[in-house]
Design a protein around this nucleic acid. Structure first.
Length: 271
DNA sequence: AATCGCGCCTGACGGC
DNA sequence: TGCCGTCAGGCGCGAT
């Protein structure tokens, strides 16, 4: 499942191949994603130049002359570069082909992803305008999390996975960061000290930055290359390790459900 | 305002 | 072998 590091790796991977190039053709094979792909997308994009590939949270923002295409990879999506006329495989729903004979190709088996047209000011789009700060920005710090969390009864894990609080912290990295910070995932967000939030902020930044670094190792071959999720290269310390020994203390890692999602933690190291 | 649970969708996997 | 149930999960949305 693409988390922020995978989306950032995708952004960096496609950028050198398609930015500054003009759209020649668009093929929509399966418009039924999370929301319908706009029927007029081919007409809209035709002859427009891709000016920049940006990211906000887990959304890719493809900026063209006359507006911005929002792309979300959902949980099974990938966007990669293929040479023109490469035969589409199963679940290759969309191609945007450019004047250099390269195409952006969206593959998404579960179709939780989205492709939407956002006009000139994409950050004002209703899907983006309530998003919290980027986790790797200075705006995401202990003071911010502490202030936002006061009187909040929800679990700290739900809290940091809320995109209105901070974007890009998915289920895997939430468990990993809470383990690194020694915080129990079910602890009420409003009952955590500023010092502990400082630790959590540091660990969230560290795990995301490290995963981006790992993703970066695949960028040179991004064209037609298989994507390797950042967490693949990470040594996950708790996620998916139920009943296995904690790497710090040896206690059995536990699996519980928080907000309908699997959560993993060490009952000895996390309080 | 905050919180909770639902459902979109396919593929992997286990049991029979 | 094949079928069927279950699980996985980002995230917007409606209900409370």
């Amino acid at each position: 499942m693409p988390e922020l590091p995978e989306v950032e790796t995708t952004r960096r991977g496609i950028e050198p191949h398609v930015v500054k190039h003009k759209v020649q053709s668009v093929a929509v094979r399966q418009p039924s994603l999370r929301w319908p792909v706009p029927a007029d997308l081919p007409k809209r994009l035709k002859a427009q130049t891709l000016l920049a590939a940006e990211r906000r949270g887990k959304y890719l923002l493809l900026r063209f002359n006359k507006g911005t295409l929002l792309v979300h990879l959902g949980m099974s999506g990938s966007l990669r570069v293929v040479v023109k006329n490469t035969l589409p495989m199963k679940h290759d729903h969309l191609d945007i082909c450019f004047d250099n004979d390269k195409c952006l190709r969206l593959n998404d088996p579960r179709r939780f992803g989205a492709v939407l047209w956002a006009g000139e000011n994409p950050l004002a789009h209703e899907l983006l305008d309530k998003l919290g700060p980027e986790p790797l920005s200075d705006a995401f710090n202990a003071d911010y999390l502490f202030t936002k969390s006061r009187k909040r009864k929800t679990s700290v894990k739900n809290f940091i996975m809320d995109s209105r609080i901070v974007v890009g912290v998915g289920n895997i990295y939430a468990s990993e960061a809470l383990f690194a910070a020694g915080i129990h995932p079910k602890r009420a967000a409003g009952h955590i000290s500023k010092a502990r939030y400082a630790s959590l902020v540091t660990e969230i930044k560290t795990v995301l930055e490290y995963a981006i670094t790992r993703g970066g190792t695949t960028l040179r071959n991004f064209l037609s290359a298989d994507g390797v999720p950042g967490y693949f290269a990470l040594e996950l310390k708790v996620y998916g390790r139920a009943d296995e020994p904690c790497v710090k203390c040896g206690a059995a890692i536990r699996s519980i459900t928080i907000g309908q999602r699997a959560s993993y933690f060490c009952p000895h190291c996390q309080r």
